[in-house]
Each structure stands twice: as structure tokens, then as C-alpha cells.
């Protein structure tokens, strides 16, 4: 996953080497495609709207963060400034407070276990002064792709089409989450009614 770096593989005279390398990785004939960012995003339905070149532009704003097993990505109630996609490894989401997360003796109750191609922390990009609703902790060695709030602001000004598509993807994600919450609420309401 080195979309942003030159690897002196192809140096077309007019085509930039980054783009050539990107298309090379995106092509079905390439052996290394399993590792490409393009391949990764094509597995996430929310990013279907992006064209190849838009994914290439988008990937330039991403940061690769490596986490060890059992390392905290963020705590609950911490100020949130980034959205994460899981590129490798798995991440657990818990509602426990900071002292419980950091206490080795306490048993963590996970509300979700996220694997490759999953994402979390999307609200932090949409909200001013966001606080994380839950804590995230890597369950095993994980590679996350992060996009930070200042990067999104920059993207809106520099590549507005890509930014608009990304925000659209974010709103799909939020809508999906809302749908889930509405369903849960309905189940709880039904159960309450049954008890009455």
C-alpha cells in the first residue's frame, strides 16, 4: 500500500508515475493488487460512487496508523477528530470508561468487534467539538487508515468533488447506523409492550 510513494517502476513521459502505478495496481493483471488501496475501497459498498482516479486522490489524504494488540485507539468521551477504516487486524468497541479500559483486571464488554473493511468514528468528522461515544481498542495488531478533520477541510477546498463523494459516503454510513438504532428501538418498544 504505497500509493503516495514513487517506486521507479513506470516513468511514463506524460503520465505521472504515481497514477501509472495506481492503475497498474488496480488492473486485474497485476499481482500486487491484493495490497492496493483501490482493491480495499472497492470492497466497501459506501465507496462505490468513487471513480478510480477519485479513489487515488482520496487515498492521498489518508494516514496509515499502526496499532499493537490491545492498544487503545481512543477513549470514551475523548475529543474526536478522525475517522478510521480497518485495513488489517480487528478493533473492539466498548462503552467502558477510561479507567476500566486501562485496568488489566477488568473484563471488557465489547459491543462490537470490527474486522477488515469496517470503519468507525465517522461522527467526529461531522460534528463540531465531537466526543467519542465509545472507546476503541485494537484486539490484535492492526493497521488503520485514518482521515483527520483538518484533512477533510483541506479536501473540501482542494478537491471538492472527491470531498462531496466522501461526505455522501459518510452520510450513507450515518443513515445506516440510524436505521440500526431505529430497529433496535422498535424491538425494545415491542418487548416493553409485551411485558405490559
Amino acid at each position: 500500500m504505497k500509493t503516495g510513494e514513487t517506486e521507479n517502476a513506470e516513468k511514463g513521459k506524460k503520465l505521472s508515475s504515481h497514477i501509472a502505478k495506481y492503475f497498474w495496481q488496480a488492473s486485474a493483471l497485476s499481482g500486487s493488487r491484493k495490497k492496493s488501496v483501490h482493491r480495499f475501497f472497492r470492497k466497501i459498498p459506501e465507496f462505490d460512487d468513487f471513480s478510480d482516479i477519485e479513489l487515488y486522490t482520496f487515498s492521498k489524504y489518508l494516514h496509515v496508523r499502526e496499532f499493537e494488540a490491545n492498544e487503545v485507539v481512543f477513549h470514551r468521551n475523548q475529543a474526536g477528530l478522525s475517522f478510521y477504516l480497518i485495513y488489517e487486524g480487528s478493533v473492539g468497541i466498548t462503552l467502558e470508561e477510561k479507567h476500566q479500559v486501562l485496568n488489566p483486571e477488568s473484563d471488557l464488554k465489547l459491543i462490537a468487534e470490527l474486522e477488515k473493511y469496517n470503519y468507525f468514528g465517522e461522527l467526529s468528522l461531522l460534528e463540531e467539538q465531537n466526543r467519542r461515544n465509545a472507546a476503541a481498542i485494537s484486539l490484535r495488531k492492526a493497521t488503520l487508515l485514518a482521515i483527520y478533520k483538518p484533512d477533510l477541510d483541506e479536501m473540501i477546498e482542494e478537491h471538492s468533488v472527491v470531498a462531496a463523494k466522501f461526505l455522501k459516503a459518510l452520510s450513507y454510513i450515518v443513515a445506516k447506523r440510524l436505521q440500526l438504532v431505529a430497529n433496535e428501538l422498535k424491538i425494545v418498544k415491542d418487548k416493553l409492550r409485551e411485558k405490559e
Partner: peptide
């Protein structure tokens, strides 16, 4: 500039990366 920024962010430890990057930007 962006490449330098990415390199700089790579050496910031995970637990302070988010806030450090935000403050740097601000």
C-alpha cells in the same frame, strides 16, 4: 508540504497523534 506532513505525523505516537495533528493545523 503534504508528504512532509505525513512523514511528521508518522513519528507522532498513536496516543497523542490526533490531538497533536489538530493543534498543529490550528
Amino acid at each position: 508540504g503534504r508528504r512532509m506532513k505525513h512523514k511528521f505525523l508518522k513519528i507522532i505516537p498513536n496516543n497523542i497523534a490526533e490531538r497533536a495533528y489538530y493543534l498543529f493545523h490550528q
